[in-house]
Design a binder for these strands. Structure first.
Lengths: 351, 351
DNA sequence: CTGAAAGCGCTTACAG
DNA sequence: CTGAAAGCGCTTACAG
């Protein structure tokens, strides 16, 4: 590989002069600089090696997005895609790299934290994920989207508890009293299936915890015994696992409406319901969360949240910190209930 | 930041010993190693700094995907998304980074090439893009998906010319004689609008050039004068630009069928047709290319190509080279005509 | 089994 | 306006 030293030798100048030609042209005479650049072009030198610059300057020129689960999930899941779209919408990535930092296993993979990025956007990690400790230990600027909420780290999120209350209230308003709940993951230990109060109390995912608390508040306000409402944990985020969980929820419990913590899980319930011959919303009402792009075509009733804008805002708050401006405040964005055709009045049998 | 030197000092060993503790444990006694790791943990040392490792070892631990246009496009365009999904499907990214290298402007942005990646997957660049020269000058292992076809660089593609022929033959079989063509971009100079033979001859995008040649071959075999068939160039890849181009095609020419070089452009034609009150396929037949996920729900007749598998294969061929195995051969994957509901028989008026 | 030394490519005070 | 020198964090022959 041709380096600055090669260019310097060929041009008959010091290596420092070549460096100046690129990064501080005002320190050289115009002729000197022109001669150096011509030599560089002749040798096929494409400019200062990024690794050398990075080691010397302490800046990598890239920011990271830390995501639970795999890269494949990142490119497949609609919400994550919207978030990424929002992040790159800030248009700062002409001279900045964007590095995806998936965390497929428990712990592991902290290689990505070893100086590769100047700042990190964290999306939906469990409260005590070890990667967060590393980030804080290294004092890497960060912004969290959704979870977890860490002291001193700006958060971009929504009022999850209130939105959860809205989901249940919508179903109660329609006359439903026999509800079921499907949630993606409460504790990242790979377990799945029906959840009891003890596991609910150990929920390590802030977003899910808040929404479930909202469900509980809405039930209690309506004199429904929350402890008797079946709650199934999927254990993952993908549709296949969701369908399996939805089946176990629908098979074991006589419910007329299901609350899902995401549109993907709502879709899993719709698929399982179809396989069981249940009509929606005649036999079963389903409400999702996110209003992902797939929600409207399916007529899914859901809570709309601005995923793209969340990403954009998170990126802007990170750039603010990288510029050295004071740490920004948390931002909570608005949500809406979007009524479509997967929820309807409780039928007579749902006394 | 805490470095190896700090850990070494605290543990009372040489800095080299700390390095060995991480990368060559067999060179240390078990006790020595344990003591070092305990000290590292106590100091909050997260392991060797990636930049230092990279500078010393000459490997960055990441591969790049070089894409025309912006990152936002990469996360939005269905075909690109499928390609990325295929790349990460190889499951090698637990200890390997994936860096996206968008090339939004002409030239520019070669920063990404300066030692940041060990290998590159190039997707659909014009024949003579300067970034390709840099990659070759630096002798960075690469694989090209679709275009351009460079001597000595493995290509993963399809038989574009033949597939183009199939598109036109399908319309001819249905009785159409007044065809129109919409293509994304022939020359990356920002121009758009109707294309003449001179511009066609300068087409710098291998895939489009091949498909257009296929269109020409099919027309000539059917005694249609290809020079009289209107061809509109969109100048970009996004839907909005496509709809504008489709309007100018439909407004200025009396066609009964449109051939599009991608499903996105086909969708643009469908949108423009709807805005003009044309029924599909009654008044206008439209055939796309790709069979992207959005094609089936819209009933789009199209050419199916295995985008996800293209990505997977490209990644595997790149890993082959990074391992030092001999350079693999080009691979051409199969395509299919998928008949759906946007193409139908030419009506009577299309004499 | 352990340590001292060289050097990867670069930037930036510092001296001339 | 220009150059010699130090050092960013690390790995790996080499010597003990």
């Amino acid at each position: 590989m041709v380096t600055m030293k090669d260019v310097a030798r060929a041009a008959g100048v010091s290596q420092a002069a070549v460096s100046y030609a690129y990064s501080r042209p005002e320190k050289l005479s115009a002729g000197q600089r022109r001669a150096i650049m011509a030599t560089a072009a002749r040798l096929g030198y494409a400019g200062p090696n990024a690794v050398g610059v990075s080691l010397r300057s302490g800046r990598s020129g890239a920011i990271g997005v830390m995501l639970m689960d795999t890269l494949e999930y990142a490119f497949t899941d609609p919400s994550t895609r919207c978030l990424l779209e929002g992040i790159v919408r800030t248009r700062r990535f002409d001279d900045l790299g964007l590095t995806l930092l998936p965390l497929p296993h428990d712990g592991g993979d902290q290689a990505a934290l070893r100086g590769l990025v100047d700042g990190v956007i964290v999306h939906s990690l469990p409260d005590d994920h070890p990667a967060l400790l590393t980030l804080r230990a290294r004092d890497i600027p960060m912004v969290v989207v959704d979870a977890p909420h860490l002291p001193g780290v700006p958060l971009v999120g929504i009022a999850d508890r209130e939105a959860g209350r809205w989901q249940v209230e919508h179903l109660l308003d329609l006359g439903h009293r026999r509800l079921g709940i499907i949630a993606e993951r409460l504790v990242p230990d790979g377990r799945h299936g029906m959840v009891d109060a003890e596991r609910r109390a150990r929920c390590a995912e802030r977003v899910v915890r808040e929404r479930i608390t909202g469900y509980q508040e809405a039930c209690e306000a309506a004199d429904l015994d929350f402890e008797r409402i079946p709650l199934v944990e999927v254990g993952g985020f993908d549709l296949t696992a969701g369908v399996a969980a939805a089946h176990s929820l629908l098979a074991g419990h006589d419910v007329t409406a299901v609350v899902a913590t995401s549109d993907t899980m709502a879709r899993a319930v719709l698929d399982a319901a179809a396989e069981r011959g249940l009509r929606v919303p005649g036999d079963l009402s389903v409400i999702g969360f996110d209003d992902a792009p797939e929600a409207a075509p399916r007529g899914l009733t859901t809570i709309r949240q601005p995923m793209v804008y969340k990403g954009q805002l998170a990126a802007e708050l990170l750039f603010t910190q990288l510029r050295g401006d004071p740490k920004p405040d948390d931002v909570y964005l608005p949500t809406d209930l979007v009524r479509r055709s997967t929820t309807g009045p409780a039928s007579l049998r749902s006394g």
